[in-house]
Design a protein around this nucleic acid. Sequence first.
DNA 1: CCCATTTCTTAATCACGATTAACTTTTTTC
DNA 2: GAAAAAAGTTAATCGTGATTAAGAAATGGG
Lengths: 192, 192
Amino acid sequence: MKDNLITHINKFIKLDEHEAALVCESIGQVGVKKKKFILKADEICKANYFVSKGCMRLYFINRNGQEQITQFGLENWWITDYSSLETGQPSIYYIQAIEDSELISLSKKTMEELLLKVPNLERYFRIIFQKVHTASMRRFEYQRDQTDEERYRHFVSLFPEFVQRIPQYMLASYLGFTPQFLSKIRGKRIKS
Amino acid sequence: MKDNLITHINKFIKLDEHEAALVCESIGQVGVKKKKFILKADEICKANYFVSKGCMRLYFINRNGQEQITQFGLENWWITDYSSLETGQPSIYYIQAIEDSELISLSKKTMEELLLKVPNLERYFRIIFQKVHTASMRRFEYQRDQTDEERYRHFVSLFPEFVQRIPQYMLASYLGFTPQFLSKIRGKRIKS
DNA sequence: CCCATTTCTTAATCACGATTAACTTTTTTC
DNA sequence: GAAAAAAGTTAATCGTGATTAAGAAATGGG
């Protein structure tokens, strides 16, 4: 499983054997069963998690008591609450497994040490964050340029297989509307 | 003006004299008058820009022909369309000066060369992107947890001085609603 | 295989904020 | 300092998607 991360890193930078070994020493492996949490609100987020298998979700509870999914963590994605991880303040987020998953964990402290031992990894994480930022901008564009219905249809056209993997109410939450509305949209589709 | 960038970098990492000199050699300076553009839609974004003085805005035109501001670039912020910059594809964005501004530009090619000469900068940009990502998440939370009116009042309470610096229609666009609606909100406030 | 829980559907009513349009005020330009 | 352009206001109407509620279907655990 640790190989997945090494492989991923090697897509962006070149690690020599020694560096790869250092990375492997520093990281932990966690198996998470479906519906189990690795972070809950009011806890302090301890690590950054690389999803090597399965699927996670990051969400918070809004003031109406509804879950607001802000991110899915699929294979080869990092997932965490950076805000809590960086500041050491309690998180408002929950991170939960949608499927039985395998994670690689990298605690804040270990990450700092590892970055000193393998400075090359700064480049890896710089590239990852840059990609994440670009994706955020893209998502923002859609949010501003499309109606909820269009955004749903667009998402389905982009990720048809992923849509099958998760309950619809999670997709509705991620896209920013209610399950009832999603059901309404889908109802239309069948009738036409 | 180049000093502003060096100072900013030194807040996060330590550059020695030689490295600072290399950075200064690599970057360009641009003065931009109010309302002038450094990027327009359909152009390819050539550089990343550090705002050392003034204020910029990043926006695109949505399908209804309205400007959608996605980001302001204040002093000590980087601003660019990373998507176009990375892929070399035409941008959909405009980057325009809201005030007379001073920018430091770093072209893609030069940035790549500079990162090889001063690997330490990978860390700087990693940290910057991580901060940007955290800010995006925060913004997303507000988007999902507050009504437009609440988001406006919250923004004003966080950045009262900035709100004075920009036209209201730009703030409305940034916050994702119409100038008319903003006007309505403000009307309420005065009456109470 | 059955009961409990989770997920999805349908429909009626409601509210936030968009749209349209006309007008006022402020800022810029010459 | 006058004319033009840009920015802000107000009000009436409209539409998207929320809310509420009740029931149907699917899934899962023992």
